[in-house]
Amino acid sequence: MTETTQSTDAEQAAESTQTTGIDIEGGTGQPLEVTSGETREQTRDEWVEYEFDGAAKLAVEDLDVYYGDDHALKSVSMEIPENSVTALIGPSGCGKSTFLRCLNRMNDRIKAARIDGSVALEGEEIYQDGVNLVELRKRVGMVFQSPNPFPKSIRDNISYGPRKHGDLETGFLAGLLGRSDDDAVDDLVERSLRQAALWDEVQDRLDDNALGLSGGQQQRLCIARALATDPEVLLMDEPASALDPIATSKIEDLVHELAEDYTVVIVTHNMQQAARISDQTAVFLTGGELVEYGETEQVFEDPESQRVEDYISGKFG
């Protein structure tokens, strides 16, 4: 799957407390960066090979991201299967959020970012000229770290995407012309909120401002808002990190249910959470390297990389 990783035999180096090891080349052809307490070793390409049945929903190949001079993501290649939960874990600053934002081209919004490589959604390259960003982001929805509902009513929050895409017409003129989709809006709002397990809590106050909801409810509203555009892939950037344990467990249950119909890619800091909810796990380590990718059980119980084992057992990061 990954051709770039031309690794030689693993050199299991001794424990090092240096921040960078210039003498060892990483598997990406880049100088290996390690933090203190981390084992020095070379990444091998078979660690990131993951076999699964069926076609890949998202196929990433040789993805490099630079923020100015900073090489944030180094030649990452991975394939993400359909209707499953893929967890991206790793210490802070390892590039997992950057990777996630590449999947719906949200990094385009950062002026300093430069992206090389290829990302294909169902075989179609999304980094080429003529890509319709509206369509791409409709198909690849995103939920952010902190809940960010718009300062509008719950109903308007949910129907915002479809209305702006022209899929639903509401308002005075549409009503005048007999083209109003108010019933369709109601259906969509109810369906999205039910999917996000929020309907029972807010069905009586759909016209209230969304900022009056609790943090956990706001985050589920954001998930419902992303679901309203009927995406195929749902990207989640640490969706539960700002929430209390009860709200977190609700989000986790929700992610589990969503995986039946959607392809979920979730970034998390919480390794127990990744182990609980994901089907496969990708471990990014310092320097923006994808070190290991495989079935969640295997990654957590029998990691092939010593660095990953150190990270999972809490020796660093």
Binding site: R109, L133, E135, G141, F144, N148, P149, Y160, G161, A226
Partner: peptide, 9 residues
Amino acid sequence: DASAALGVS
């Protein structure tokens, strides 16, 4: 960001 992620211009 939220609006852009929904594909709104």
